[in-house]
């Protein structure tokens, strides 16, 4: 179901393919459009299938931004609920993946803000659970710590690009920002992440 749904299985880095912005037609197949149409009428089976197809995408987006499993679960659930409740307002069914991504990002960023207002340190929980250990696990911990130090906006572009492999124009569409901003935000986010990671691991 398009790049967003397929993102989890995509092995990529420098990989081409159609974009959300200009290749929308090829992106969602007829069966997917039919699912969306049925979901709009409140068909529970269609809704279940859509959630199943997109839950990894939404959850990973939320986790990347929120850095916490419980919050990411709440954000995922909330994003789907909001999406299905306002599905009637979605004009072009083909834009569903971008639209859903936008909702997920917005909810996650709102939750980050709400958390910041309650003055909680997102890195706390991560720090608490570290006990050295295997390479993969410690790399993951390093990544989480470094990501947590980025601003939510920087985390968001990293998540959309690195987690899901969205193209720049797709990210621009999801975040509703100019493509030039995506470009510079991504650059700064990556350089900062690199800086924090080299600090964590003591390499260059």
């Amino acid at each position: 179901m398009g790049r967003i749904a397929a993102a989890e299985s995509t092995a990529r880095l420098e990989e081409g393919g159609p974009t959300l912005a200009d290749g929308g037609d090829a992106r969602l197949e007829q069966a997917d459009l039919e699912l969306i149409r049925r979901a709009r009428q409140g068909d529970p089976q269609a809704i279940e299938t859509i959630v199943r197809n997109y839950q990894s995408f939404v959850y990973r987006t939320a986790y990347g931004i929120l850095q916490n499993a419980a919050d990411a679960e709440d954000a995922t659930q909330e994003a789907f609920i909001r999406a299905f409740r306002s599905l009637g307002r979605l004009r072009e069914d083909r834009t569903f993946p971008t639209w859903l991504a936008r909702i997920a990002v917005r909810i996650s960023l709102d939750m980050v803000q709400a958390k910041a207002r309650r003055a909680q340190d997102p890195t706390e929980e991560i720090h608490g659970s570290v006990a050295g250990g295997e390479d993969a696990a410690s790399l993951r911990i390093d990544l989480e710590r470094a990501l947590a130090k980025l601003s939510p906006e920087h985390r968001t572009v990293i998540v959309l690009r690195a987690f899901h492999g969205l193209e720049y124009d797709e990210i621009a569409e999801v975040l509703e920002i100019p493509i030039g901003t995506v470009r510079s935000r991504l650059h700064h986010a990556r350089m900062q992440l690199r800086m924090y990671l080299s600090g964590e691991r003591g390499d260059s």
Binding site: R12, Y59, G64, T76, L193
Partner: peptide, 14 residues
């Protein structure tokens, strides 16, 4: 870093 992010993302499941 990018590769590490991709493989980490794969471990995250709803």
């Amino acid at each position: 870093d990018e590769r590490a992010l991709v493989s980490w993302a794969r471990t995250l499941t709803a």
